[in-house]
Design a protein around this nucleic acid. Sequence first.
DNA 1: CTGAAAGCGCTTACAG
DNA 2: CTGAAAGCGCTTACAG
Lengths: 337, 337
Amino acid sequence: MTINDVARLAGVSKKTVSRVINNSPLLRAETREKVQKVIADSGFAPDPQARGLAFRRSFLVGMIYDNPSPNYVVNMQQGVLDAVRGAGLELVVHPCNRASDTFLSDVRGFIVRQKLFGVVMPPSVSEDERVIAILKEAECPYVRIASVSLDEPRHMVVTNDSSGAAEAARHLAGLGHRRIAFISGPDSFRSSHERGRGFAEGLAEHGLTLDPAYVRVGAYTFESGVEAARDLLAMADRPTAIFAGNDEMAIGVMKAARDAGLDVPFDLSICGFDDLPMASRVWPNLTTVRLPIRDMGRMAAEKLTASIRGLDAATLTQPEVRPSLVVRDSTAPLQGS
Amino acid sequence: MTINDVARLAGVSKKTVSRVINNSPLLRAETREKVQKVIADSGFAPDPQARGLAFRRSFLVGMIYDNPSPNYVVNMQQGVLDAVRGAGLELVVHPCNRASDTFLSDVRGFIVRQKLFGVVMPPSVSEDERVIAILKEAECPYVRIASVSLDEPRHMVVTNDSSGAAEAARHLAGLGHRRIAFISGPDSFRSSHERGRGFAEGLAEHGLTLDPAYVRVGAYTFESGVEAARDLLAMADRPTAIFAGNDEMAIGVMKAARDAGLDVPFDLSICGFDDLPMASRVWPNLTTVRLPIRDMGRMAAEKLTASIRGLDAATLTQPEVRPSLVVRDSTAPLQGS
DNA sequence: CTGAAAGCGCTTACAG
DNA sequence: CTGAAAGCGCTTACAG
């Protein structure tokens, strides 16, 4: 079944069938219906490769990422697919290593060769201006997901990490904690700074300041969380609450607390960020800040598909990404003070 | 840069350039080198859409899956990518819901429309003969990953779940346990039966039998693990060791043990299956059986790319997938008996 | 509002 | 061992 067969069956030219496929407005309603009936009856579906060749643009959406968390990746893929399916597009995944020598040429090759319909990028790829330059040069549409705005609105989904971190701060301060520590993610991630900034702001609302003596820099990994927490818990005036920059590290803090003979949350309150599935499996269940990762992927992909759906990207109401605090069992009121 | 430009620069016909691209043997070495030099100098890369249109076959490998575990999915994607990159192919992901009314027509549409180069399927999609029928009808190459052989060798990567489960049984029996329980996965998964069968065989080697009174059927989820373990631990002669069909359920068993006031591993040994990252984060660290999921994905994709690499799929040495026991802190010798 | 011609960048089938 | 012609299934640019 090709466009020629449909044209013959409908008694029109293939160009007219093409117009139906592409929702051209310059078509008599009657003609359109006639062709649509033949398409529906025959089960015809246009060949994406042929369309792509003629359009000089494929029907593939690429997701380029270096995020190490499987949960994050799968959830975001699912979100992108939510938007992409039904739009007649497919999702091509492209994990990468920004530290590799061939990183940029790999990414360029992928983008240029596949003539991608569009690209979605979560941090930290979304924060790499060299990748953006390649996309611009290739005139490839793209959307960046990041904790702070880095580009024009049509290219951005902003996740407001700072507001989530502020909520965590209010929660801990509201429980009466005063010696509150923060374990930051690595310097190279914007989110590390955004979460730290928001956390400090939230504390400030309660008249507290984030004492640099109670700040450690981790690597967003379990092990770095363990190490940072060991250090903090060995202090003379050890913190009574710790906010970790992500759940991986927060669960490392739990291990360090257990090793130090501290009861969580009685002796130490712990709060994470991300709400991994693991957060509600560990004991005690982890209080954390949830980011709607699937929604973020969907929103990003919807910006890409707006043109197909006949929408002006500017017309899209800009839905806000709001992190939200999920209070579980790893945080409790300050004891005996 | 197109094939025409290369042909002009090399002073040959575009058909000759095409022969170089496709590794045709009927080419004078001299001609081949001349063309290859132009290709290397110009950075030319053939357009996959144009090639695909002419070949009537795309350069996309599809991964179709309904596995709910993000870790499993991401690891397997990574394995497929290990094989697919460098072969000039891309990975298109296609999660699906086998319970959906539109499941089969969705999958058929995906396969037929994209003219996939090949498809890789983990369980339980790999166990669905209706999907296989569609693939055969579309003459689409495919590889099935499953716990037991279901097809000709060139279509299979077999994971020998039973041998891993047998290892778990030997481990627990070797620690002196006699009242050993098994929490099975759902009936609809072949792996549930394979793991149960292997476990029983391993026990038999130690002169033990798997008592049906100590068997429960779960759903491969955390919650079902909690529930099954509650039931087992409430027995008059409660088991001293539990083998859970996967890690999710094993971690549910941990929760049930904690709720029942039992110390793991002193009062109860627990063993899982999968070795999720979570297994080495929970407390105590979980003893489990590891499946080399990334390798499984790579091996499956290599069967698909064998033709490109000029290999006969039959020639491929069939690497064995061997699950391996990872002993951690959730299992210990039987106490006081 | 509709169509005939040319073309997207490659390969197949046929020659020589 | 190499090439000229026709074609893969669509769309663009131009007419009318």
